[in-house]
């Protein structure tokens, strides 16, 4: 081996060594802050529950996972489906899907409107979309409570204008949850949609019109396919946090309209069943991961479509 190649080889090794040192802090944080706690949750879900919360360390048990989907009758010990859990799970998925659709229907025209403005006005509008992020979600949810409660803005207006005699009960219904969730998650839909729309070559829209497509056809055949990556990204960004929503259903839905997030909270609090809470958390994680995989597959499929 000549000197030159030896020096080059040494340099290459030093380079790899440096790279490890440089990435070490990031890897450390990733492990301690993300993977570590998840492993703890996973372990807890396989342990026996403690009498006053916590778990009995080292005592393996599938009770937690068993109770996610099944329950044992107190009297005759028969096993049945845990209807409460399944219905809350289904409810969460349903509410999240509806929230996603609502934000999509409201967010799409909003993002389109922003994308056709002059650049400076566009920046201002995008900035305004992000303003709600400056405030804590709890405060925003209480603000929404002011809007939907019986003496709130909507009911006061409805009664005052004579459309209804008595306030409509919105608070503590699914409607209140929709109001709250749509309000909280709308920016997460608008921003990715806007990012895709801004990239659209407006001549493609003109080409659509030129080839006898009316407004609706241009929307359906040209604009929507082109902003599909944004639609998928926005939907995932709204769907995932909706699924685990905790504050909004708690404040606006009252105690009885639970979602998965509240159910998990319950297990760690009053329920004192940490293994079940952990198993439910992992279940939520799996649903989210499946949704994300769907997204990644879709995004890579439509990725090659742009550019000339």
């Amino acid at each position: 081996m000549s000197d030159a190649t030896r020096i080059a080889e040494n340099a290459r090794r030093a380079d790899i060594r440096n790279r490890w040192w440089l990435t070490a802090p990031a890897l450390f944080i990733l492990f301690v802050a993300a993977i570590g706690p998840l492993l703890v949750v996973l372990l807890y879900s396989f342990m026996l529950k403690g009498d006053f919360g916590d778990v009995k360390y080292g005592q393996f048990s599938l009770d937690g996972w068993f109770s996610v989907f099944f329950e044992r009758d107190i009297f005759d010990d028969t096993v049945g489906i845990a209807e409460a859990h399944v219905s809350i799970l289904w409810r969460s998925v349903k509410l999240s899907l509806i929230t996603t659709l609502l934000t999509l229907f409201i967010g799409f025209p909003t993002a389109y409107y922003i994308s056709i403005q002059e650049p400076r006005r566009r920046d201002l509008l995008v900035f305004m979309v992000t303003i709600p992020f400056w405030t804590n979600i709890l405060i925003r949810t209480f603000a929404m409570q002011e809007v939907v409660r019986n003496e709130g803005v909507i009911n006061t207006l409805l009664v005052w204008s004579g459309i209804v005699d008595r306030p409509i009960q919105i608070m503590y219904t699914d409607w209140a949850i929709f109001f709250g969730m749509v309000y909280v998650y709308l920016p997460l839909m608008v921003l990715p949609l806007y990012a895709s729309m801004e990239k659209i070559d407006f001549r493609l829209v003109e080409a659509g019109y030129d080839l006898y497509a009316g407004r609706f056809q241009v929307l359906r055949r040209v604009i929507i396919p082109l902003v599909k990556p944004g639609i998928v990204a926005g939907s995932i960004l709204v769907f995932i946090p909706s699924l685990g929503a905790y504050v909004t259903p708690r404040v606006l839905g009252g105690g009885k309209n639970l979602m998965l997030g509240n159910l998990i909270d319950l297990q760690f609090g009053q329920g004192k069943n940490w293994p079940l809470g952990s198993a439910l958390s992992i279940t939520l994680l799996v649903i989210v991961t499946v949704a994300l995989l769907f997204y990644v597959r879709n995004a890579s499929k439509s990725g090659g479509g742009h550019g000339h």
Binding site: D201, L204, E206, A207, G208, D210, A213, H308
Partner: peptide, 16 residues
């Protein structure tokens, strides 16, 4: 879309 006229655009504007 109501004119029997079609255009060839400068950068073609083909639907990607």
């Amino acid at each position: 879309y109501k004119r029997p006229v079609n255009t060839v655009f400068q950068n073609y504007a083909l639907f990607p």
